[in-house]
Computed example of a mutant assay.
Amino acid sequence: MINDRGSIKWTTMMLPEHAELLRELWNEDNKIKKPLLDPQEMELMEQHLQTAYLDKLRTEFTIYSPSALQTVTGTITKLEQQTKQIHIKKEDGTRLPLPLQLIVNITIKK
């Protein structure tokens, strides 16, 4: 039986610049696009945001980053209209500023 090493056997024939370019292309393929929100979803998110802030409710935020969607759970401590940020106190006690344009979904936890 032939023991094939796949693409590993070809890396010795590549220049380091070419290998780096391939890594960058593979990383580019793994990026995700930011989901588009319709006006109704944005309205609902704004209502959840106001309710969570006024009632100091535990909330889960889904945040967009190019590599993946992340979730952060905590309570909103501050809303900044000028900078369009919210400040979250996470469950472990750390505080996190969060730009509003990165939020994809808001869920109020019970």
Results as ranks from 00 to 15, higher is better:
residue 1 M to H: 11
residue 5 R to N: 01
residue 8 I to C: 12
residue 10 W to C: 03
residue 17 E to Y: 00
residue 19 A to C: 06
residue 21 L to A: 05
residue 24 E to R: 10
residue 25 L to M: 15
residue 27 N to M: 12
residue 30 N to K: 15
residue 30 N to Y: 07
residue 31 K to R: 08
residue 32 I to N: 02
residue 33 K to L: 09
residue 33 K to H: 12
residue 34 K to N: 11
residue 36 L to F: 00
residue 37 L to S: 06
residue 39 P to A: 12
residue 41 E to I: 09
residue 44 L to I: 06
residue 49 L to V: 02
residue 50 Q to I: 12
residue 51 T to A: 14
residue 52 A to I: 00
residue 53 Y to V: 00
residue 54 L to A: 03
residue 54 L to G: 02
residue 55 D to Q: 13
residue 63 I to C: 10
residue 65 S to W: 04
residue 68 A to D: 07
residue 70 Q to C: 11
residue 73 T to C: 02
residue 74 G to S: 04
residue 78 K to S: 08
residue 79 L to D: 01
residue 80 E to P: 00
residue 80 E to S: 03
residue 81 Q to Y: 11
residue 85 Q to I: 12
residue 85 Q to P: 09
residue 88 I to W: 09
residue 89 K to H: 04
residue 89 K to V: 04
residue 89 K to L: 08
residue 90 K to M: 12
residue 92 D to A: 05
residue 93 G to C: 03
residue 94 T to D: 00
residue 97 P to F: 10
residue 97 P to L: 07
residue 98 L to S: 01
residue 100 L to Y: 11
residue 101 Q to N: 13
residue 102 L to M: 10
residue 103 I to P: 01
residue 103 I to M: 06
residue 103 I to D: 05
residue 107 T to E: 04
residue 107 T to C: 04
residue 108 I to Q: 09
residue 108 I to S: 10
residue 108 I to K: 13
residue 109 K to W: 06
residue 109 K to V: 10
residue 109 K to Q: 13
